Simulated assay, not measured.
Amino acid sequence: MNPAEQQPPTQDGNVLGAAAAPTQGPPQLPPQMFTTAAQLLDLTDNFNPTEKLMLVLRDGRKLLGVLRTWDQFANLVLTETKERYYVEAPSPAGSPRKLFCDIPRGTFLVRGENVLLLGEIDLDRDDEDPPGYVEGPVEEVFEIQKRQENERKKNDKTKARKAGDFWGGELEGSGEVLF
């Protein structure tokens, strides 16, 4: 008999005294599974200065800019930031015109808990208008945005009042974003 056959195998199946196969470390997660604030490292401009991001905040605002730095709470500092507005304006032809505009905001600090969505901007398509939208004058787009926001707030108050009447009480500030 072979001496290696006489020895009992170990837990990993190798025979004591036999040459062990190289062991592998613990299984690694694929990069797309890395979902902590440390994933922002690849998006920070210190490592990739041409990386632009779009953030959608909890209040609905959309910001485009270069990620300068961040911390363990995912608080973000963006430079060259622009706030983008999308609106649908009535047109004489009957179908609404879809307009957008960018308002320069400079350096912007965003608290991590306010980030709803964060995504990279494709630099090859960055100079193109968003599909279906045409760039409009900032004053016009901003005015339409304010009107739509006031209308939404008015509708929300009406809904809250009706819900309060139905449930027999007032629903103070439920769902309202305070600034």
Rank of each mutant, 00 (worst) to 15 (best):
L43I: 03
E170Q: 04
P104T: 13
N14L: 02
E51Y: 13
A18N: 03
G25R: 07
G17W: 01
A93P: 01
D129N: 12
L55Q: 00
Q145M: 14
Q7A: 12
V15R: 07
Q39H: 11
W167L: 14
P137I: 04
T158R: 11
V115A: 07
I103M: 08
E5A: 14
G94F: 04
D124H: 05
P8W: 02
P92H: 10
P49F: 00
P30A: 12
P49Y: 01
R84V: 03
D12A: 02
K62Y: 12
Q7M: 10
P137V: 11
L117S: 13
E5F: 14
L57W: 06
G17L: 06
N2Y: 05
R68K: 13
G175R: 00
L57D: 04
L29M: 03
P131Y: 11
D122I: 02
W167C: 06
D156K: 06
K154H: 13
N155L: 10
G164W: 00
Q39G: 08
K162I: 00
E128T: 04
D45K: 09
L123E: 11
P130Y: 14
A18R: 09
Q39E: 08
P104G: 15
F100R: 03
F108Y: 11
L43Q: 12
R152P: 01
E151P: 01
E139T: 05
Q39S: 15
P31A: 13
R68G: 06
K52Q: 13
E172N: 05
C101E: 02
M54G: 05
T50L: 10
L63I: 09
E170F: 02
G168L: 03
T35V: 06
C101Y: 03
D12T: 00
W70F: 15
A89S: 09
G173I: 01
G94E: 02
Q28A: 08
Q28Y: 08
L117Y: 09
E140I: 03
L67M: 14
R84N: 01
P3M: 04
R58H: 13
P130S: 13
A20P: 07
N114Y: 05
L117P: 02
A21L: 09
G175C: 13
T79S: 15
P9A: 01
V87A: 15
K62C: 08
G119F: 05
L123N: 12
L53M: 09
L109A: 05
A74S: 15
Q11D: 09
G175T: 05
M33E: 15
D42R: 11
F73K: 11
S91T: 07
D45M: 08
Y85A: 10
Y85E: 14
T50C: 12
T79M: 10
V15H: 03
A20I: 10
V66S: 10
V177H: 15
N2F: 12
P31E: 02
